[in-house]
Design a protein around this nucleic acid. Structure first.
Lengths: 216, 216
DNA sequence: TCAAAAGTGTTAAGTTTACACCCATGA
DNA sequence: TCATGGGTGTAAACTTAACACTTTTGA
């Protein structure tokens, strides 16, 4: 009975697409597919997938992320719905984009390899299919916005990190250079960041103090 | 040929729901339906509708807003997609929420009456069906956020307005009282707001200067 | 004449920015 | 010993916040 209220309305494919951020070699990267399947085989795209009957849209995004990276419990946020008629030239698909921030030490390299996915410098992206460029642009904006007020950046770092790494990350997010002393002053005022007693010697002779986020 | 890539995936109803803000009697209001149709007849909800084959999701939102208010070219922004499996207990529907800011002088009262819709004080809302409360909460947050940096508030005001009206509006948006002198100082620094030579006498004996937004 | 809303500046506190040199180490 | 990245403080500019009284007018 109830099931018939909507019967005169059309149905659509609903997809999810993931903008997957990682911080690698001192730069922000996105994990992109060089598509080895149709449609648009051979072109670059975000990792995506279709929402299934038994899952919420959010869960579909988590599933798709896991299919590519093996990771669960990753920081994800919705970017928004993309619903232009011709956004996918093959067939009408409404897509909901999500961005994910992942610690690049953790992902499953085999899975990524099997999907023909590559980490790509965010300031040097190839053209992407459909409206994926627009999705990326919107995700970057939302992420940047969010990073001003909330401490989401740490999701991109390993458990321990140097202040220089942290600064470089934020410079990547905001797209501008920051003053070292002012940056460190601010970090010093964040109660949830604490020094460890370890030193990272990998990036300088002197070595840099490692810090970590205090779990609440 | 191309059309068959996605054939194994399910399709869903896709709806839009509109959080319609108006500024009335010195308070922020939402335009809500007291539903005179199924499902959930008799309960309160946002104005919504289903996306049709020939229209984008954005266009569906514009159409739905126009169906209720008669208005076109209203300021609208997407709030996000809501895709929980059971969000509509009757049937699986993915909904994309939008908020609209409208000048309450302009809408079509007959249409609104026919839809059994009412302006409701945003701080005194009835419980809404499904996840509409969540949509409203998210829309308010996004709107508040946006109002900090961008001058969207003016969409809620008539062409000419007093500074007291403007301040009351922003107090409604931010949910806090503002200092009159500081507020006026800030407005004075906005180049796109200009004095008119008219005085509004409706709210005080002395009368208050009317201002307007300069179109760019 | 008085009630009610409109209008008007100054100061202190806090925040943000700009800026340059010494340190520790391994090669 | 020197090249490299790590680490450190202060002062000026700017922004934000706090605060109270006078004006105008119609009833």
């Amino acid at each position: 009975m109830e099931k018939n209220f909507y019967i005169n309305h059309p149905k659509f494919y609903v997809a999810v697409d993931c903008i997957i951020f990682g911080f690698k070699e001192q730069k922000l990267h996105l994990l992109l597919l060089k598509r080895n399947f149709e449609p648009a085989m051979g072109q670059w795209s975000l990792m995506g997938g279709f929402v299934q009957v038994g899952e919420s849209v959010d869960d579909a995004a988590k599933r798709v992320l896991k299919e590519l990276t093996g990771l669960e419990r990753v920081y994800m946020e919705q970017v928004g719905a993309f619903g232009d008629i011709e956004r996918d030239p093959g067939e009408r698909v409404v897509s909901v984009a999500y961005y994910a921030l992942l610690n690049i030490d953790d992902y499953d390299k085999n899975l990524v390899h099997r999907h023909n996915a590559y980490w790509t410098d965010i300031n040097n992206l190839p053209p992407l299919i459909f409206d994926h460029d627009e999705m990326v642009a919107k995700a970057r904006n939302i992420m940047k916005q969010k990073a001003v007020n909330e401490d989401i950046g740490f999701n991109l770092l390993p458990e321990q990190f140097t202040l220089t790494q942290l600064q470089t990350l934020y410079e990547g997010i905001f797209g501008e250079t920051l003053d070292k002393r002012n940056f460190r002053k601010r970090v010093a005022g964040m109660p949830f960041i604490e020094q460890t007693d370890e030193i990272d010697k990998s990036s300088s002779r002197r070595g840099a103090r490692l810090y970590r986020v205090v779990k609440k």
